[in-house]
Amino acid sequence: MSISPAPTRGPARPAPYVISGILITLGIVVPLLVPTYAHSTPALIGIPFFYWYQMLWVFGDAVILWICYGLITREDQRRRDAVRVGRRAATTDEGAR
């Protein structure tokens, strides 16, 4: 195999992943808890709770993923920069020697 063993990212800080993991778990589990919303009241402009509540979760999950996107891409970028800056420093060192 000619795969370069060079890591693509530096070590991770757990916080962004843990927070995102919790949010994403909520975003999957809560919309599936059918007993919590299988009732008709309170209705919204004649639409039973069952229907508008589930459609509201479209926005709920969009917001959750938007937050996770911010957290994860920032951490991802930091990890990448850590490796790339390190690699560039290493090559300049060699050049100086």
């Binding site: 975003g27 919309p31 599936l32 589930q54 459609m55 479209v58 709920g60 969009a62 959750i64 993923l65």
Partner: peptide, 11 residues
Amino acid sequence: AVPYTVVLYPI
């Protein structure tokens, strides 16, 4: 289909 296409995106 609505909760289906809601929990789809976190996955």
